[in-house]
């Protein structure tokens, strides 16, 4: 168990380094290859020589990438010093650097935005799990019935609709025409009721998409599991149908669902870009979209790292959960 954990964590570390390296490459190497001076991308409208020089110094563009990478990770674990314009600024750990655009420290931005996205992802996940599992199980058990058809038609529609289009339609109908819910985001700390009202539509939009996928997967897995020998055995033993389904079939069905859930929640931490944009939710997705447009590398790195970490951690938790759900799986 311990060696397993260590091995996993080591793999995680390697992966995070690679991801950061990839981001570095995108923003420093690709412009170089295609003939753009990266400094001009960050200097904004002011192409003055001194300003360019200042940018080079600040971004350490003349240093090799690996050194920059090392500095970056050093900052996260022990903090780092920024030298520039005759001053030294110490940035304590965990230091993700300062925004190229407004000099704001990145770490507080991340911690400020993370909960917003987390609530969005978790709330939606809860909703889509319930809906997806329910629809999927009912469809599988009543295969071929009207419920199965209805459920699967809905699910197919769900996976075929772009989430922002669903969002826009929901907004127009429920927020503007009917005025049932709030159409804008209110911070949790400000007014919980308003926050909830503002989050309903984003949750539903996301849950519609993911719930549809989960329903399809649940149904497929369930059908397969029901055909397995051990289910037949259980039935033959005279167990109640409820027990057969609830205890045996569901367990096996949950395994792939859990895997997906891990990946999805993790991915949503950085991938709710479309939903956050559609509903103007000030989460990580929106921050990173803005950062990409402004080429604010430290912020992009920060969000990317958080997202990747979230995916990895979610996967780890899922792996550990397997052992609980499916006794056949032993970690090692």
């Amino acid at each position: 168990m311990l060696t397993y954990l260590i091995r996993r964590l080591l793999a995680v570390a390697v992966m995070l380094v690679v991801i950061v390296l990839a981001v570095f490459c995108i923003f420093f190497l690709i412009p170089k290859w295609t003939g753009t001076d990266p400094a001009t991308m960050y200097v904004g409208k002011q192409a003055d020589k001194e300003a360019l020089e200042g940018v080079r110094e600040k971004l350490q563009l003349d240093e090799p990438i690996l050194l920059q990478l090392f500095e970056f990770f050093k900052g996260i674990f022990v903090g780092r010093d920024y030298v520039g314009g005759g001053t030294v600024t110490h940035c304590p750990a965990p230091c993700f650097g300062y925004s190229f655009r407004n000099e704001q420290a990145i770490w507080p931005v991340l911690t400020d935005r993370l909960p917003v996205t987390l609530y969005l992802a978790l709330g939606a996940a809860l909703l889509w799990l319930v809906i997806g599992l329910a629809v999927g199980v009912v469809s599988a058990l009543k295969r071929g019935s009207i419920w199965d058809r209805l459920g699967m038609t809905g699910a197919l529609a769900g996976v075929s609709l772009p989430v922002y289009f669903t969002g826009l339609i929901l907004l127009t109908v429920f927020a503007y025409q009917l005025g049932l819910v709030s159409n804008s985001f209110t911070p949790f700390g400000e007014n919980v009721g308003k926050w909830f009202s503002g989050m309903i539509l984003p949750w539903i939009s996301l849950a519609f998409l993911f719930g549809a996928m989960y329903a399809r997967i649940t149904r497929a897995t369930m059908l397969e599991v029901m055909g397995e020998d051990y289910i037949r055995t259980a039935r033959a033993k005279g167990l109640k149908e409820q027990t057969v389904i609830g205890k045996h079939a569901m367990r096996s069905t949950m395994t792939p669902i859990l895997t997906l859930l891990g990946i999805d929640i993790g991915a949503l931490m950085g991938g709710a870009i479309l939903t956050e944009t559609t509903f103007s939710i000030p989460g990580l997705g929106q921050a990173v979209l803005k950062a990409i447009n402004e080429r604010d590398l430290p912020l992009i790195l920060g969000v990317t790292l958080i997202t990747a970490t979230a995916v990895v951690i979610a996967n780890l938790i899922v792996d550990l959960l397997y052992g609980v759900i499916d006794p056949r799986v032993r970690l090692g």
Binding site: A175, Y176, S182, N183, S184, S197, T277, S280, K290
Partner: peptide
């Protein structure tokens, strides 16, 4: 991007 499309408004 972020500013161009706009959907949500205020309640």
């Amino acid at each position: 991007v972020a500013t161009l499309f706009a959907t949500s408004a205020c309640g």
